[in-house]
Design a protein around this nucleic acid. Structure first.
Lengths: 196, 196
DNA sequence: AGAACTTGCAACAATGATGATGCAAGTAGA
DNA sequence: TCTACTTGCATCATCATTGTTGCAAGTTCT
Protein backbone atom coordinates (compact mmCIF):
# COMPACT_ATOMS: atom_id res chain seq x y z
CA UNK A 1 0.00 0.00 0.00
CA UNK A 2 1.15 3.51 -0.68
CA UNK A 3 2.69 5.02 2.40
CA UNK A 4 0.93 8.06 3.94
CA UNK A 5 3.58 10.71 3.39
CA UNK A 6 6.37 10.51 0.90
CA UNK A 7 8.79 13.37 0.76
CA UNK A 8 9.18 13.03 -2.93
CA UNK A 9 5.48 13.49 -3.53
CA UNK A 10 4.11 16.04 -1.09
CA UNK A 11 5.21 18.28 1.73
CA UNK A 12 2.19 17.74 3.93
CA UNK A 13 2.50 17.94 7.66
CA UNK A 14 4.56 15.11 9.02
CA UNK A 15 4.85 13.61 12.47
CA UNK A 16 7.88 14.84 14.35
CA UNK A 17 9.64 11.48 14.43
CA UNK A 18 9.14 10.99 10.72
CA UNK A 19 10.56 14.42 9.99
CA UNK A 20 13.58 13.57 12.10
CA UNK A 21 14.07 10.35 10.18
CA UNK A 22 13.96 12.20 6.88
CA UNK A 23 16.62 14.66 8.05
CA UNK A 24 18.77 11.80 9.35
CA UNK A 25 18.55 10.04 6.02
CA UNK A 26 19.38 13.17 4.05
CA UNK A 27 22.43 13.84 6.19
CA UNK A 28 23.59 10.24 5.98
CA UNK A 29 23.12 10.25 2.22
CA UNK A 30 25.29 13.35 1.96
CA UNK A 31 28.00 11.74 4.05
CA UNK A 32 27.95 8.47 2.11
CA UNK A 33 27.48 9.80 -1.41
CA UNK A 34 30.15 12.47 -1.04
CA UNK A 35 32.63 9.65 -0.46
CA UNK A 36 31.15 7.30 -3.03
CA UNK A 37 28.51 8.60 -5.46
CA UNK A 38 27.70 5.04 -6.48
CA UNK A 39 26.89 3.85 -2.97
CA UNK A 40 23.79 1.68 -2.62
CA UNK A 41 20.59 2.53 -0.77
CA UNK A 42 21.61 -0.15 1.70
CA UNK A 43 24.81 1.71 2.58
CA UNK A 44 22.91 4.96 2.99
CA UNK A 45 20.34 3.31 5.22
CA UNK A 46 23.07 1.76 7.31
CA UNK A 47 24.82 5.11 7.72
CA UNK A 48 21.51 6.60 8.83
CA UNK A 49 21.00 3.80 11.34
CA UNK A 50 17.77 2.87 9.65
CA UNK A 51 16.37 -0.10 7.73
CA UNK A 52 16.55 0.10 3.98
CA UNK A 53 12.79 -0.23 3.72
CA UNK A 54 12.41 2.94 5.75
CA UNK A 55 14.40 4.84 3.20
CA UNK A 56 12.18 3.51 0.44
CA UNK A 57 9.10 4.42 2.41
CA UNK A 58 10.27 8.02 2.67
CA UNK A 59 11.69 8.34 -0.82
CA UNK A 60 9.94 6.61 -3.65
CA UNK A 61 13.18 5.91 -5.48
CA UNK A 62 16.86 6.57 -5.43
CA UNK A 63 16.29 9.43 -7.83
CA UNK A 64 13.69 10.91 -5.49
CA UNK A 65 16.18 10.81 -2.63
CA UNK A 66 18.87 12.51 -4.67
CA UNK A 67 16.36 15.10 -5.85
CA UNK A 68 15.38 15.79 -2.27
CA UNK A 69 19.03 16.26 -1.37
CA UNK A 70 19.46 18.67 -4.25
CA UNK A 71 16.35 20.59 -3.26
CA UNK A 72 17.40 20.81 0.36
CA UNK A 73 20.95 21.93 -0.37
CA UNK A 74 19.78 24.32 -3.03
CA UNK A 75 17.50 26.10 -0.59
CA UNK A 76 20.36 26.52 1.86
CA UNK A 77 22.60 27.65 -1.00
CA UNK A 78 20.16 30.34 -2.07
CA UNK A 79 19.74 31.50 1.53
CA UNK A 80 23.50 31.69 1.90
CA UNK A 81 23.87 33.86 -1.17
CA UNK A 82 20.93 36.05 -0.20
CA UNK A 83 22.25 36.62 3.29
CA UNK A 84 25.34 38.26 1.82
CA UNK A 85 23.37 40.84 -0.19
CA UNK A 86 25.65 40.52 -3.20
CA UNK A 87 23.67 43.04 -5.24
CA UNK A 88 23.96 45.97 -2.87
CA UNK A 89 27.08 45.53 -0.74
CA UNK A 90 30.33 46.90 -2.20
CA UNK A 91 31.80 44.25 -4.52
CA UNK A 92 34.87 43.39 -2.50
CA UNK A 93 32.92 43.05 0.72
CA UNK A 94 30.20 41.08 -0.99
CA UNK A 95 32.82 38.75 -2.44
CA UNK A 96 34.14 37.88 1.01
CA UNK A 97 30.72 37.50 2.53
CA UNK A 98 29.25 35.41 -0.25
CA UNK A 99 32.29 33.19 -0.24
CA UNK A 100 32.25 32.57 3.49
CA UNK A 101 28.52 32.08 3.49
CA UNK A 102 28.54 29.60 0.63
CA UNK A 103 31.48 27.75 2.11
CA UNK A 104 29.56 27.18 5.32
CA UNK A 105 26.89 25.38 3.33
CA UNK A 106 29.26 23.60 1.01
CA UNK A 107 31.26 22.12 3.87
CA UNK A 108 28.15 20.25 4.96
CA UNK A 109 26.41 19.66 1.63
CA UNK A 110 29.19 19.34 -0.90
CA UNK A 111 27.73 16.42 -2.79
CA UNK A 112 24.16 17.71 -2.81
CA UNK A 113 25.34 21.10 -4.04
CA UNK A 114 27.07 19.51 -6.99
CA UNK A 115 23.67 18.42 -8.30
CA UNK A 116 23.09 21.64 -10.20
CA UNK A 117 21.46 19.90 -13.13
CA UNK A 118 18.76 18.16 -11.16
CA UNK A 119 15.59 16.76 -12.67
CA UNK A 120 13.84 19.34 -10.52
CA UNK A 121 13.60 22.47 -12.67
CA UNK A 122 13.38 24.62 -9.55
CA UNK A 123 16.84 23.51 -8.51
CA UNK A 124 18.29 24.25 -11.92
CA UNK A 125 16.59 27.64 -11.86
CA UNK A 126 18.11 28.60 -8.52
CA UNK A 127 21.57 27.56 -9.67
CA UNK A 128 21.19 29.54 -12.87
CA UNK A 129 19.94 32.45 -10.83
CA UNK A 130 22.95 32.35 -8.52
CA UNK A 131 25.23 32.16 -11.52
CA UNK A 132 23.68 35.33 -12.86
CA UNK A 133 24.07 37.11 -9.56
CA UNK A 134 27.68 36.04 -9.56
CA UNK A 135 28.15 37.53 -13.00
CA UNK A 136 26.46 40.76 -11.91
CA UNK A 137 28.74 40.94 -8.89
CA UNK A 138 31.77 40.45 -11.09
CA UNK A 139 30.47 43.12 -13.42
CA UNK A 140 30.24 45.58 -10.58
CA UNK A 141 33.67 44.50 -9.39
CA UNK A 142 35.02 45.22 -12.83
CA UNK A 143 33.34 48.64 -12.88
CA UNK A 144 34.81 49.42 -9.47
CA UNK A 145 38.26 48.43 -10.64
CA UNK A 146 38.50 45.46 -8.33
CA UNK A 147 38.47 43.00 -11.21
CA UNK A 148 40.72 43.35 -14.22
CA UNK A 149 38.91 44.48 -17.36
CA UNK A 150 40.82 42.15 -19.65
CA UNK A 151 39.63 38.98 -17.93
CA UNK A 152 36.91 36.85 -19.48
CA UNK A 153 33.96 36.97 -17.04
CA UNK A 154 33.05 33.35 -17.73
CA UNK A 155 36.56 32.25 -16.90
CA UNK A 156 36.57 34.37 -13.74
CA UNK A 157 33.39 32.71 -12.54
CA UNK A 158 34.71 29.28 -13.38
CA UNK A 159 37.87 29.98 -11.42
CA UNK A 160 35.88 31.35 -8.51
CA UNK A 161 33.68 28.27 -8.33
CA UNK A 162 36.73 26.02 -8.58
CA UNK A 163 38.53 27.85 -5.78
CA UNK A 164 35.52 27.53 -3.52
CA UNK A 165 35.37 23.86 -4.34
CA UNK A 166 39.04 23.35 -3.53
CA UNK A 167 38.78 25.30 -0.31
CA UNK A 168 35.82 23.19 0.76
CA UNK A 169 37.74 20.02 -0.06
CA UNK A 170 40.77 21.06 1.93
CA UNK A 171 38.76 21.91 5.07
CA UNK A 172 41.88 23.66 6.23
CA UNK A 173 40.52 26.23 8.67
CA UNK A 174 37.20 27.86 9.47
CA UNK A 175 34.93 29.20 6.71
CA UNK A 176 36.15 32.77 7.18
CA UNK A 177 39.80 31.85 6.85
CA UNK A 178 39.00 29.72 3.81
CA UNK A 179 37.03 32.57 2.28
CA UNK A 180 39.93 34.95 2.81
CA UNK A 181 42.24 32.51 1.12
CA UNK A 182 39.85 32.03 -1.80
CA UNK A 183 39.32 35.73 -2.42
CA UNK A 184 43.00 36.49 -2.01
CA UNK A 185 43.95 33.82 -4.50
CA UNK A 186 41.18 34.79 -6.88
CA UNK A 187 42.23 38.42 -7.01
CA UNK A 188 46.02 38.25 -6.57
CA UNK A 189 46.91 34.72 -7.59
CA UNK A 190 49.92 33.13 -5.96
CA UNK A 191 52.66 35.00 -7.84
CA UNK A 192 54.68 38.06 -6.90
CA UNK A 193 54.11 39.84 -10.19
CA UNK A 194 57.85 39.70 -10.91
CA UNK A 195 58.94 38.60 -14.35
CA UNK A 196 55.54 38.99 -15.99
CA UNK B 1 38.14 -21.02 -22.51
CA UNK B 2 40.55 -18.34 -21.41
CA UNK B 3 41.31 -16.05 -24.29
CA UNK B 4 44.89 -16.04 -25.68
CA UNK B 5 45.85 -12.48 -24.81
CA UNK B 6 44.20 -10.34 -22.22
CA UNK B 7 45.49 -6.86 -21.76
CA UNK B 8 44.85 -7.00 -18.08
CA UNK B 9 47.01 -10.06 -17.66
CA UNK B 10 49.98 -9.87 -19.96
CA UNK B 11 51.54 -7.59 -22.51
CA UNK B 12 52.64 -10.28 -24.92
CA UNK B 13 52.80 -9.56 -28.60
CA UNK B 14 49.39 -9.02 -30.07
CA UNK B 15 48.08 -9.26 -33.60
CA UNK B 16 47.74 -5.86 -35.23
CA UNK B 17 43.96 -6.00 -35.48
CA UNK B 18 43.62 -6.92 -31.83
CA UNK B 19 45.87 -4.06 -30.80
CA UNK B 20 43.70 -1.71 -32.82
CA UNK B 21 40.59 -3.01 -31.11
CA UNK B 22 42.14 -2.44 -27.71
CA UNK B 23 42.99 1.15 -28.59
CA UNK B 24 39.51 1.72 -29.96
CA UNK B 25 37.97 0.41 -26.77
CA UNK B 26 40.20 2.52 -24.55
CA UNK B 27 39.35 5.64 -26.51
CA UNK B 28 35.64 4.88 -26.48
CA UNK B 29 35.76 4.20 -22.76
CA UNK B 30 37.37 7.57 -22.18
CA UNK B 31 34.69 9.29 -24.24
CA UNK B 32 31.80 7.51 -22.53
CA UNK B 33 33.08 7.48 -18.96
CA UNK B 34 34.09 11.13 -19.01
CA UNK B 35 30.44 11.94 -19.65
CA UNK B 36 29.05 9.30 -17.31
CA UNK B 37 31.41 7.47 -14.95
CA UNK B 38 28.67 4.94 -14.19
CA UNK B 39 28.14 3.94 -17.81
CA UNK B 40 27.81 0.21 -18.48
CA UNK B 41 30.19 -2.00 -20.43
CA UNK B 42 27.44 -2.24 -23.03
CA UNK B 43 27.52 1.51 -23.61
CA UNK B 44 31.29 1.48 -23.88
CA UNK B 45 31.21 -1.39 -26.34
CA UNK B 46 28.58 0.38 -28.40
CA UNK B 47 30.64 3.56 -28.50
CA UNK B 48 33.61 1.51 -29.66
CA UNK B 49 31.52 -0.11 -32.39
CA UNK B 50 32.25 -3.51 -30.94
CA UNK B 51 30.32 -6.33 -29.28
CA UNK B 52 30.26 -6.36 -25.52
CA UNK B 53 31.82 -9.80 -25.50
CA UNK B 54 34.83 -8.44 -27.32
CA UNK B 55 35.41 -5.93 -24.55
CA UNK B 56 35.27 -8.74 -22.00
CA UNK B 57 37.66 -10.84 -24.03
CA UNK B 58 40.19 -8.03 -23.97
CA UNK B 59 39.65 -6.89 -20.41
CA UNK B 60 38.90 -9.49 -17.78
CA UNK B 61 36.65 -7.16 -15.84
CA UNK B 62 35.39 -3.63 -15.69
CA UNK B 63 38.07 -2.89 -13.13
CA UNK B 64 40.73 -4.25 -15.48
CA UNK B 65 39.51 -1.91 -18.22
CA UNK B 66 39.58 1.09 -15.94
CA UNK B 67 43.02 0.11 -14.72
CA UNK B 68 44.24 -0.15 -18.29
CA UNK B 69 42.88 3.32 -18.99
CA UNK B 70 44.66 4.66 -15.92
CA UNK B 71 47.90 2.99 -16.92
CA UNK B 72 47.67 4.26 -20.47
CA UNK B 73 46.89 7.84 -19.50
CA UNK B 74 49.45 7.82 -16.74
CA UNK B 75 52.18 6.92 -19.15
CA UNK B 76 51.23 9.78 -21.43
CA UNK B 77 50.99 12.06 -18.40
CA UNK B 78 54.50 11.21 -17.26
CA UNK B 79 55.83 11.69 -20.78
CA UNK B 80 54.14 15.08 -20.96
CA UNK B 81 55.72 16.24 -17.73
CA UNK B 82 59.12 14.84 -18.68
CA UNK B 83 59.09 16.53 -22.05
CA UNK B 84 58.92 19.92 -20.32
CA UNK B 85 62.05 19.33 -18.22
CA UNK B 86 60.51 20.93 -15.15
CA UNK B 87 63.60 20.31 -13.02
CA UNK B 88 66.10 22.18 -15.16
CA UNK B 89 64.24 24.82 -17.16
CA UNK B 90 63.75 28.21 -15.47
CA UNK B 91 60.62 28.00 -13.28
CA UNK B 92 58.42 30.37 -15.23
CA UNK B 93 59.23 28.76 -18.55
CA UNK B 94 58.81 25.31 -17.10
CA UNK B 95 55.43 26.31 -15.71
CA UNK B 96 54.17 27.27 -19.16
CA UNK B 97 55.60 24.24 -20.85
CA UNK B 98 54.42 21.72 -18.30
CA UNK B 99 50.98 23.26 -18.34
CA UNK B 100 50.62 23.20 -22.11
CA UNK B 101 52.06 19.72 -22.30
CA UNK B 102 49.79 18.31 -19.63
CA UNK B 103 46.77 20.04 -21.11
CA UNK B 104 47.36 18.34 -24.42
CA UNK B 105 47.06 14.97 -22.69
CA UNK B 106 44.25 15.99 -20.39
CA UNK B 107 42.08 17.20 -23.24
CA UNK B 108 42.03 13.66 -24.59
CA UNK B 109 42.26 11.62 -21.40
CA UNK B 110 40.53 13.69 -18.76
CA UNK B 111 38.67 10.83 -17.15
CA UNK B 112 41.55 8.39 -17.21
CA UNK B 113 43.85 10.98 -15.69
CA UNK B 114 41.50 11.47 -12.78
CA UNK B 115 42.22 7.89 -11.70
CA UNK B 116 45.22 8.83 -9.61
CA UNK B 117 44.42 6.34 -6.89
CA UNK B 118 44.30 3.30 -9.12
CA UNK B 119 44.60 -0.25 -7.86
CA UNK B 120 47.79 -0.34 -9.91
CA UNK B 121 50.55 0.84 -7.55
CA UNK B 122 52.66 1.93 -10.52
CA UNK B 123 49.99 4.47 -11.47
CA UNK B 124 49.79 5.84 -7.95
CA UNK B 125 53.56 6.04 -7.85
CA UNK B 126 53.77 8.10 -11.03
CA UNK B 127 51.09 10.50 -9.82
CA UNK B 128 52.86 10.91 -6.49
CA UNK B 129 56.09 11.41 -8.38
CA UNK B 130 54.59 14.14 -10.55
CA UNK B 131 53.16 15.81 -7.47
CA UNK B 132 56.64 15.93 -5.97
CA UNK B 133 58.11 17.40 -9.13
CA UNK B 134 55.37 20.01 -9.04
CA UNK B 135 56.29 20.87 -5.48
CA UNK B 136 59.97 21.08 -6.41
CA UNK B 137 59.12 23.38 -9.31
CA UNK B 138 57.09 25.61 -7.02
CA UNK B 139 59.95 25.62 -4.54
CA UNK B 140 62.31 26.85 -7.22
CA UNK B 141 59.72 29.37 -8.32
CA UNK B 142 59.51 30.65 -4.79
CA UNK B 143 63.30 30.89 -4.56
CA UNK B 144 63.40 32.81 -7.84
CA UNK B 145 60.77 35.20 -6.59
CA UNK B 146 58.16 34.10 -9.10
CA UNK B 147 55.94 32.66 -6.41
CA UNK B 148 55.00 34.55 -3.28
CA UNK B 149 56.75 33.32 -0.15
CA UNK B 150 53.67 33.63 2.04
CA UNK B 151 51.62 31.18 0.05
CA UNK B 152 51.07 27.64 1.31
CA UNK B 153 52.74 25.35 -1.24
CA UNK B 154 50.03 22.72 -0.85
CA UNK B 155 47.35 25.27 -1.61
CA UNK B 156 49.31 26.55 -4.60
CA UNK B 157 49.50 23.07 -6.05
CA UNK B 158 45.85 22.45 -5.39
CA UNK B 159 44.95 25.69 -7.17
CA UNK B 160 47.25 24.85 -10.05
CA UNK B 161 45.69 21.42 -10.54
CA UNK B 162 42.21 22.94 -10.33
CA UNK B 163 43.01 25.60 -12.91
CA UNK B 164 44.35 23.01 -15.31
CA UNK B 165 41.19 21.01 -14.77
CA UNK B 166 38.95 23.98 -15.46
CA UNK B 167 40.91 24.97 -18.54
CA UNK B 168 40.60 21.44 -19.87
CA UNK B 169 36.87 21.46 -19.22
CA UNK B 170 36.34 24.75 -21.00
CA UNK B 171 38.21 23.65 -24.14
CA UNK B 172 38.23 27.31 -25.04
CA UNK B 173 41.22 27.59 -27.33
CA UNK B 174 44.32 25.58 -28.16
CA UNK B 175 46.50 24.08 -25.41
CA UNK B 176 48.99 26.93 -25.59
CA UNK B 177 46.35 29.62 -25.16
CA UNK B 178 44.79 27.65 -22.33
CA UNK B 179 48.18 27.24 -20.68
CA UNK B 180 48.82 30.97 -20.91
CA UNK B 181 45.49 31.65 -19.29
CA UNK B 182 46.14 29.11 -16.53
CA UNK B 183 49.58 30.44 -15.67
CA UNK B 184 48.42 34.03 -15.84
CA UNK B 185 45.52 33.34 -13.52
CA UNK B 186 47.66 31.25 -11.20
CA UNK B 187 50.27 33.95 -10.77
CA UNK B 188 48.27 37.17 -11.05
CA UNK B 189 44.71 36.13 -10.26
CA UNK B 190 41.91 38.07 -11.87
CA UNK B 191 42.09 41.23 -9.78
CA UNK B 192 43.79 44.56 -10.39
CA UNK B 193 45.43 44.71 -7.00
CA UNK B 194 43.42 47.81 -6.15
CA UNK B 195 41.75 47.93 -2.75
CA UNK B 196 43.71 45.07 -1.22
C1' DA C 1 46.93 -22.41 -48.67
C1' DG C 2 46.84 -23.27 -43.92
C1' DA C 3 47.24 -22.38 -39.00
C1' DA C 4 46.23 -19.30 -35.52
C1' DC C 5 43.74 -15.67 -34.11
C1' DT C 6 39.77 -12.48 -33.72
C1' DT C 7 35.10 -11.06 -33.90
C1' DG C 8 29.91 -11.06 -33.54
C1' DC C 9 26.10 -13.44 -32.04
C1' DA C 10 23.22 -16.00 -29.06
C1' DA C 11 22.67 -17.90 -24.91
C1' DC C 12 23.48 -18.62 -20.10
C1' DA C 13 24.54 -18.14 -15.00
C1' DA C 14 25.44 -15.27 -11.17
C1' DT C 15 25.01 -11.29 -8.73
C1' DG C 16 23.50 -7.19 -6.61
C1' DA C 17 20.45 -3.29 -6.46
C1' DT C 18 15.89 -1.60 -6.49
C1' DG C 19 11.33 -1.36 -5.00
C1' DA C 20 7.04 -3.35 -2.82
C1' DT C 21 4.40 -5.48 0.94
C1' DG C 22 2.43 -7.72 5.13
C1' DC C 23 3.02 -7.98 9.84
C1' DA C 24 4.20 -7.11 14.65
C1' DA C 25 5.99 -3.93 17.99
C1' DG C 26 6.56 0.56 19.34
C1' DT C 27 5.73 5.75 19.51
C1' DA C 28 3.37 10.43 18.97
C1' DG C 29 -0.27 13.10 19.79
C1' DA C 30 -5.31 14.15 20.76
C1' DT D 1 -6.37 5.78 26.62
C1' DC D 2 -7.11 5.32 21.92
C1' DT D 3 -5.99 6.03 17.22
C1' DA D 4 -3.01 6.81 13.64
C1' DC D 5 1.42 6.65 12.32
C1' DT D 6 6.13 4.80 12.04
C1' DT D 7 9.69 1.44 12.10
C1' DG D 8 12.26 -3.03 11.59
C1' DC D 9 12.17 -7.42 9.76
C1' DA D 10 11.44 -10.93 6.54
C1' DT D 11 10.23 -11.80 2.04
C1' DC D 12 9.34 -11.40 -2.69
C1' DA D 13 9.59 -9.90 -7.58
C1' DT D 14 12.03 -7.45 -11.01
C1' DC D 15 15.70 -5.70 -13.36
C1' DA D 16 20.23 -4.36 -15.08
C1' DT D 17 24.90 -5.52 -15.21
C1' DT D 18 28.63 -8.45 -15.27
C1' DG D 19 31.15 -12.18 -16.91
C1' DT D 20 31.40 -16.79 -19.51
C1' DT D 21 31.08 -19.90 -23.36
C1' DG D 22 30.37 -22.33 -27.93
C1' DC D 23 30.15 -21.62 -32.57
C1' DA D 24 30.49 -19.82 -37.22
C1' DA D 25 32.52 -16.46 -40.23
C1' DG D 26 36.15 -13.56 -41.28
C1' DT D 27 41.12 -11.83 -40.88
C1' DT D 28 46.30 -11.87 -40.26
C1' DC D 29 50.38 -13.66 -41.01
C1' DT D 30 53.56 -17.15 -42.62
Amino acid sequence: MPYPVRVSETTRAMRADAARTVRTILEAAERVLSRNPAASMEQIAEAAGVARTTVHRRFASREALVDAMAAWATRRFAEAVDSANPDTTPPLVALYQVTASVLRVKLDWGFAMSLALSSDPEVARVHADVRERCDRLFSRAQATGVLRADVDPGWARQVYYALIHEAAQSRDGDPDALAARVVDTLLRGVGTGQGL
